[in-house]
Amino acid sequence: MSPASASADKTERLLNLILALKSARRPVSKQKIRESLPAYAAATSDEAFDRMFERDKDELREMGIPISTTVIDVLFDDEVGYRIDSSETTLPAISFEPDEVAALALAARAWSTASISGAASAGLRKLRLAGVEIDESVAAGAEPRIRTKEPAFEAVHAAVSALQPITFDYRRNDGELSTRHVQPWALKNWHGRWYLTAFDVDRGDERAFRLSRFEGTVRRKGRPGSYAVPSDHVPEVALEAQPPEPVGTAVIRVRHGRGHTLRRNASRTTELDERWAEIEVPYQRGTTERDVVALGTHAVAVSPAELVTGVRAALQAVADAHGGNADAATHSDATGGPA
């Protein structure tokens, strides 16, 4: 079992124990707890169950969750029951400042449609059948879930948790579709969008993928726990290196034989004459300006106005530094390449 999977199982086991003890109106015997909760019922021996249960009790108490122990029958003082008193775990009324309310509202967007998990529900049902009175209101909303509009989210999240390689079809900024084989490292919400950081097996390097660009089904491609995430991996670093999102279309004129980087991303190319061509590319603020400026007199920005202004400002800065002017730097005597 992978470390991530073991941690998830332990978290679910502790949560189910809390629900069982907090939902019961009277103390519950250790035997009924074992019979009712799947993780304890799966214990291979009485000793294994006792060790697991005692460890879990100690951990919950260290977390500040009070578990009371009560003799169930005065005639048999060796049989005790366990319970978590709701009144001892209920917070007093709290007031918030407007900015705190706004932060809570944002957090709530990621915790919508909470429901009790299947394992916990089954455990409470067994306790009820065993004659334990259950308070259903305590269990409401015990399993938070994150809802997203990206169809790939659940499959990718499962792969990240299980450390399991996956393969998927991915559409790049330029619209090209390719199949990627990766080892998922982390899921991160970055500027309102979900991204996967991963090791790209084919390219032999770290990459970041925007979930909304996944096409079709995410396929598992290897065993869970078959790799490890680098201890120094910081998702934000990989996402900072992501190229900016396109904000429209840029029209640029380039000399023949020049601007291969721009031409690769062109959605349309029109030959103007024997020396110039006009191309349309996705406009990425900063990046497109940089690519045009790098070509010097071999490229001319046509639109949008923001691109033209940015290119002219960058060239003017270069011209000022060398005692010239941007108009001279961008002027062309070709009929297809306007100044």
Rank of each mutant, 00 (worst) to 15 (best):
T330D: 02
V138I: 13
T297A: 13
S112A: 12
K126F: 00
N189A: 10
A277P: 00
H298F: 11
Y40I: 04
A41P: 04
V160G: 01
L295Q: 03
L163M: 08
D56M: 04
G337A: 15
L315D: 04
P66L: 12
K188M: 12
A159H: 02
A152R: 07
A20Q: 03
H181K: 14
H233Q: 11
H191N: 13
A155K: 08
L211F: 12
E236F: 12
D333A: 11
R290D: 00
V182Q: 05
R220L: 15
D58V: 07
A139D: 00
L37A: 08
I67T: 05
L19T: 03
F199I: 08
A186L: 04
R193L: 13
V229K: 03
T167H: 10
I65P: 01
H298D: 14
Q284T: 03
M1W: 07
G118S: 14
T297K: 13
S23C: 15
A8Q: 11
A43K: 07
P244N: 11
R285C: 01
S137M: 10
L307M: 09
L60Q: 04
L17Q: 06
S267E: 09
R264I: 06
R61V: 12
D77H: 00
P3L: 11
S332F: 01
T335P: 06
Y283P: 00
S303Q: 13
Q183W: 09
L177N: 11
R171S: 10
V201W: 00
I146W: 08
R290I: 01
T249N: 07
M52S: 15
L163R: 13
E215T: 14
Q242Y: 11
T309G: 10
D174P: 06
T69N: 04
L307C: 02
I252Q: 03
S23N: 05
T287I: 12
S36P: 06
Y40L: 06
R219C: 11
A328M: 05
S87Y: 07
G323K: 08
P3Y: 00
V160P: 01
F214W: 10
V132D: 02
Y227Q: 02
S68C: 04
G310E: 01
F209A: 05
V138Y: 14
A152L: 13
F153A: 05
R109V: 12
Y40R: 08
S112C: 05
S226D: 00
G310H: 09
G257P: 02
A334E: 14
L196K: 06
R25S: 09
E240R: 14
I67D: 05
A208K: 05
L14G: 04
A326E: 03
V311R: 07
E143N: 15
R61T: 12
L91E: 03
D205H: 07
F53C: 06
F214A: 09
I134T: 07
H331S: 10
Y170G: 00
D320P: 03
I116Y: 03
H331D: 06
P144G: 08
Y170P: 00
D200Q: 08
D273L: 08
L124R: 06
R210L: 15
E289W: 12
T287P: 04
T90Q: 11
G131E: 04
